[in-house]
Each structure stands twice: as C-alpha cells, then as structure tokens.
C-alpha cells in the first residue's frame, strides 16, 4: 500500500512539473530576429491582422498598465497583437498607477509600464527602473464630472460641485485621476470644501461604482472610465484644459530589466502599442493621441 501511495505522489508531482514547464516557455526555438518593417501593419488599413506572419518572435511579456487601459488591452489590443505574433504571450496587470509603481519598485517582473500620469513614470525613471530615453508620451485623457443617470443632482459643472450631497474622487495620494481632480478643483477654488467631505477611492473603479450605485451623488473620473460604463454613469462636464496644470498624459516605456531573450517580444509589443492601428483602438475607448 505504501509503495502505491508513493507512486501516485511521484506521478502527480511529474504532471505538475510538466504543466509548469509548458506554461512558462513561449515556444521551442527562440529565433530572435530584428522585427522587420513588414511587421508593422499598413497605415491606411484599419482592419486587423495582415496576411503575412511576422518572423517567429516568441516570449512572455508582462505589461503593467493603468486600470483605465485594461478594457482597451484585454478587449482589442491583445487579440490584435496576438494575431500578428501568435508566439508571444502577453500578460497584463492593471491597477492604479501608484500601486503599480510600488509593485515595480518592490520587484514586480513587468516588462512594460503604461502609466496614467507622468508622476509615476518619472518616479521609476528616477529610481533607475526605466531609461528616460525609452519613455514615449502616447495618450491624452480628459477629466470628467459624472453622475448616475437616475440622479437628480443640481450640479452642472465643476464650478458648482459643492452643491452635491456626496462626492467621490480618487485619493490624490495614490490615484492620478484623483490628483487631476485636486488640480481642477484647486484652480476653481473649491478644493478645501471638497476635500473635507469627499470619499477617497483607492482606484478609479471604486469611484465609478460609488457613483453608479448612487452612494456618491457625483464623482470625478477620466473620460475613458465614463465611457466604460455608458449605461451606469453620465457625463455632466469635461474639465477644461485651463483648470489643469498639466494635461492628462499617458506615457509608456519599456523597463531596463527586460532580458536579452525577451527583448524582441517586448520591443514588438511596444512598437505595436505605438502603431496607428493601436491608436485607433485607443480612440475608440475615449482616449486622444498626445500631440506634444
């Protein structure tokens, strides 16, 4: 009996090892050729997947991206990319840029960082995780005031936001959308009042949910966030650029830690992200290209 038990355990262990091995490797040969110009989809085409298959670039790429980018990546960009590069496994981890910055500093093995604000990207550059030259300011997002479709709020714009019984914003200490909210409201002179009564979400999704459920009468999020829940929230106003010190810029960069064997795959993905094809996807989600 004991012998049989041992055999079963060993067998199970082997199976477990085999499945782990199968998971990690992206494929057999790692033919790391330089991504050629033919990999880039034609600028005029809006459709997905060109006929030719790119050279067999393989690897596993992890992108750490702001929560507001999750839908765009998981919904459209990853499938589009994988159609061209089937041997590259892309894993996305999405959260507030502040948390992602902390995690990367704490050792998260991400290959690409796509932040919702310049602050976190700058911090990682300073910390030596990212080369300043690798940073591209790619997208622009707008800051909007939202409410639930069922609410009978008297608030019409950022100016009279204090008429709301309850307000939800992202915590400026950790959520870029919250920092921008603070900027806008400070410019309008109502920040102190709002700060003392607002609920501080630790990520934007929390703020969205609070507003959608009516716990908060109004909230401040990104245009892209509002676009992600079109039936549950409605936009009352868009923050005008004059009220913000800095525009809402989304920079993207490859991390220094990317290894040799992963470089080709990572470069391919970054190129894809910067491509016009990807940009049209971003625009469909509410972003604008950054022209700066």
């Amino acid at each position: 009996m004991k012998r049989n038990h041992l055999l079963i355990i060993v067998f199970a262990f082997i199976i477990a090892l085999a499945s782990f091995a199968g998971c990690s490797s992206g494929g057999g040969e790692a033919a790391t050729e330089e991504p050629a110009a033919t990999e880039e989809p034609a600028a005029t085409e809006e459709q997905a997947a060109p006929e030719e298959e790119a050279p067999a670039v393989s690897g596993a790429v992890m992108i750490a991206a702001a929560a507001s980018l999750e839908n765009a990546f998981e919904g459209d960009l990853k499938p589009l990319f994988n159609a061209q590069y089937p041997d590259v496994t892309v894993t996305g981890t999405y959260d507030s840029s502040g948390k992602l910055q902390e995690q990367i500093e704490g050792g998260l093995e991400a290959d690409i960082f796509f932040s919702a604000a310049l602050k976190q990207m700058d911090a990682l550059v300073e910390g030596g995780f990212i080369d300043a030259a690798a940073v591209t300011d790619l997208l622009l997002n707008e800051v909007v005031l939202i409410t639930s479709p069922q609410s009978e709020t008297k608030v019409t714009s950022f100016d009279n936001i204090t008429e709301a019984k309850s307000i939800a914003i992202g915590d400026p200490a950790s959520v870029p959308a919250g920092q921008y909210a603070q900027e806008v409201l400070t410019t309008l002179g109502v920040w102190d009042k709002v700060e003392s009564t607002a609920s501080m979400g630790t990520n934007v999704t929390e703020v969205l949910n609070w507003v959608a459920e009516g716990s908060a009468e109004v909230g401040i999020v990104y245009a892209t966030d509002a676009a992600s829940m079109p039936d549950d929230v409605k936009v009352l106003a868009i923050a005008s650029p004059e009220t913000m010190q800095t525009p809402v810029v989304y920079p993207v960069a490859e991390l220094i830690r990317v290894t040799e064997e992963n470089k080709a795959a990572t470069d391919a993905f970054v190129e894809f992200i910067k491509s016009p094809e990807a940009m049209s996807v971003f625009e469909s989600y509410g972003f604008k290209p950054y022209e700066g």
Binding site: D171, M200, W210
Partner: peptide, 27 residues
C-alpha cells in the same frame, strides 16, 4: 465598509481603510 460607507477622511475612514489608503499612497 468601503462599499457602502465610502472612504471619507474624518467621517467614514476607519482604521482599516486608513491603513489601506496610507499603504497605497506610499505613507
């Protein structure tokens, strides 16, 4: 608590919420 009471400093921010916000905010 986070869901129904919100995270309003000085009103509904209990210690657990404060801890979480502080950690996430780098404090």
């Amino acid at each position: 608590t986070a869901l129904i009471a919100g995270n309003i400093p000085g009103v509904t921010r209990t210690m657990p919420l404060a801890i979480y916000s502080a950690v996430v905010g780098g404090r």
